[in-house]
Design a binder for these strands. Sequence first.
DNA 1: TTATATTTTTAGATTTGTCTAAATTTTATT
DNA 2: AATAAAATTTAGACAAATCTAAAAATATAA
Lengths: 220, 220
Amino acid sequence: MNFTTSEENYIKSIYHLQQETGTVNTNSLAAEMQTRPASVTDMLKKLKAKKLLQYERYKGFKLNEAGKKAALDVVRKHRLWEYFLVEKLKFDWDKVHPIAEELEHISSNELIQRLEKFLGNPSFDPHGDPIPDRNGKIPVLNQQCLSDLPLKKTVTVSSVSNQTAQMLEMLKHYKIALGTQLIVQRKFDFDGSLEIKVLKQAACIISEQVAKNVFVHYDQ
Amino acid sequence: MNFTTSEENYIKSIYHLQQETGTVNTNSLAAEMQTRPASVTDMLKKLKAKKLLQYERYKGFKLNEAGKKAALDVVRKHRLWEYFLVEKLKFDWDKVHPIAEELEHISSNELIQRLEKFLGNPSFDPHGDPIPDRNGKIPVLNQQCLSDLPLKKTVTVSSVSNQTAQMLEMLKHYKIALGTQLIVQRKFDFDGSLEIKVLKQAACIISEQVAKNVFVHYDQ
DNA sequence: TTATATTTTTAGATTTGTCTAAATTTTATT
DNA sequence: AATAAAATTTAGACAAATCTAAAAATATAA
């Protein structure tokens, strides 16, 4: 089935919200999409007519299997384009989101398959988010928050939940990027800050606030 | 100024038509765009209001300087994306047009500048058409039709005016592509066919019909 | 130069996606 | 349980881009 840009944006937002909350309600979707509840209701009727979601008046809604697959197609495109923008065009990762928001609506499937191959079939985008495959399968990675980590274990940074320019600046300073290996050497109880050792760098101290936004996985 | 996808498509089509005919009329633009004359009139009013063209009722129309610059921006994007699709994603050149028709409307200027650099600042797209620079300047190449060429001169293929799959198949057979060097050795008056020698290939004969669609330039 | 044909425009309708304001339904509170 | 508050939907409007059918302007031809 083929969708409009607007339909795809709704589907994608519903998908993200229902990942967190199970079912989605009108007001939260309107807030997420920066639109009005009435507009949401209008679109819900269209998406229900296209059999993409379960929806009854006043009762909340959620994507069915067809809807989830449609959402994952858009997410897949978005993340592959983000990977392209950062890895090939050398954009900073905090600049690529709005451009990928446009590129994700280009319709050609062959384009996406060739792009994926050109990029070397990446599994994670530049923010560490998983890229669904063409069947909607999502790669999983056992991630843990840096602030909950035991001491002395070597880990690799796999994603960062705060993706602002401010955070990017901070991480650049510490020479931390996705794929960076590090060890937590010590935790200070006073303020929750951590002494960490980034591979090939001198040990340094990061605040709990930073640590809470960095996710890692154990090596191999 | 920012334009809608529809506006950009009209601007681009007007540009191409006025290259050939000076001024453009409603019916020919409607035919070019596969739409109705009434729809063209509607859009002309919008483009006139945005000061992109000279237009008086019943009198034909043409882009002014602002309109031409807007058109060249779209042409530039289209051709850079075609170059990307063929050179990086390995699409056949006869498959890329409809995809570039979508990509050309992605708005980010920084994207296009970075794409251009990533591609190595190409001057011509995979069909041999010139890629305008960011100021709208178009590279020129003294081209000549293969069928009008004197004998025994070494030339390089620079563009092909018929870009169908059938033509591509034919040229592939003769091992002719953009950049291929060749010499016309003989012309047969009977049917206008040419004996040509492609560099590193045995001499062969091509029909006048093929020759009329191949354009070349003298070496360096 | 008058009649006919062609081209172009207008008038009014349609679709998609959005909005405001009012009405309805559900939820929370006393 | 009655009432107030919050959430949701409906009704009706609007802008963009398109269409059909009819009217108006221009071009062509007898």
